[in-house]
Computed example of a mutant assay.
Amino acid sequence: MIDLPSDVEAARLLERLGVSSRDRDETLAARPDPQEHPELWRSLERCYRDLTSHLGAALPADGYRALPAFPAEAGPVALHLYVWLYLAVLPRTLRYHAERGIDPRTSWETLSTLGPVMAEHRSVHGLGGVGGFDQWCPPLKFRGTEYKLGRLEYDRGHGERPDGMTGYVLHLHIPSGTPLSPDSCDESFDLARTFFERHFPEEPVSHFACHSWLLDPQLAEYLSERSNIVRFLRRFTLKPRTSGDADRADGDLLEYLFSKPSRQEPVTESRLAVLPQETSLQRAYVAHLRSGRNWRARTGWMPYRTAR
């Protein structure tokens, strides 16, 4: 049984989760109701059961499936449905954190990334909510799998190691925001080692792992070796590409760099022609695609104990 918070409590929690006043008001106006929105309510119940049944679980080696996006025309209740899902799960998330001895400051720093996700949704889609995005990171945060520690975020989980075996790894996620400076990354890696060894000692980690367009070595063709991005990707040993890899990331960069919807691939010349060219990364994006090539998301590893 899902117990949604009252409007007063929801508004308080949304503020704690970093949600702007405009997004708070639109969320309250889009409250789902089992009688008025029976199909959406059934979807909410399914998602709630899935999230709570995996509470505290590390990611399996074969990953997990994101909660699917809604089309924009589905309306505001659908686009805010996952926000209400997270509000419903939140009390159980906080109890789980407390049982693990995780301090409230880290809990709220992790969970309050919901506000920036909603802001990004409005920037990309021109609409409130989060439902225009596939839900990858937020469900992991609310089930106790992902944590924000300084500049970077980390998923607990099983994964492939460089030797081809499977073991515990920390999967990195790089949120947008402040620069990806070497010092901020070093600080975050140190925080991660301390945090996970203290709160999850039964999960011996061997490597940091990352799958991202930020590890595309083609970036070094356009950016300085002293750039934050190139210095970040040089930390990792890349997994060799195979002919069957589905790693094209043109849409991911389009969304990240230009706040444009990423589902409309391929990126045509007419779309490239109207993109701003204000930063070296924006210029690299356009020049690379115009040369007939594509951007790639690559997988890389970094030893857990020799990150610097």
Rank of each mutant, 00 (worst) to 15 (best):
L233H: 06
E278Q: 15
R248N: 12
Q218I: 07
D216V: 03
K260M: 15
A273Y: 08
R241V: 11
E225A: 15
L253P: 03
E255W: 02
S224Y: 11
R283I: 08
D252G: 11
L253W: 04
C210A: 14
L214W: 08
H211P: 04
G244Y: 11
R271A: 13
S259L: 11
R296K: 10
L272A: 11
Y285G: 03
D247Y: 03
W295P: 00
Q277N: 08
F208D: 04
R298E: 06
S280D: 15
L275G: 02
G244M: 14
Q218T: 07
S270L: 12
R290S: 02
Q282N: 12
K260E: 15
F258S: 00
L233V: 05
N294Y: 11
F232A: 01
S270Y: 13
K260L: 06
S270F: 13
L223S: 03
P276R: 07
E225P: 05
E269P: 00
N228E: 15
R248V: 09
L253H: 02
A273D: 12
R283W: 06
D245L: 10
R283K: 12
V286A: 05
R231K: 15
Q282A: 12
D250N: 10
Y256M: 14
P217K: 03
S212W: 13
K239F: 02
Y285K: 01
T268M: 13
V267T: 01
V274M: 08
H288R: 13
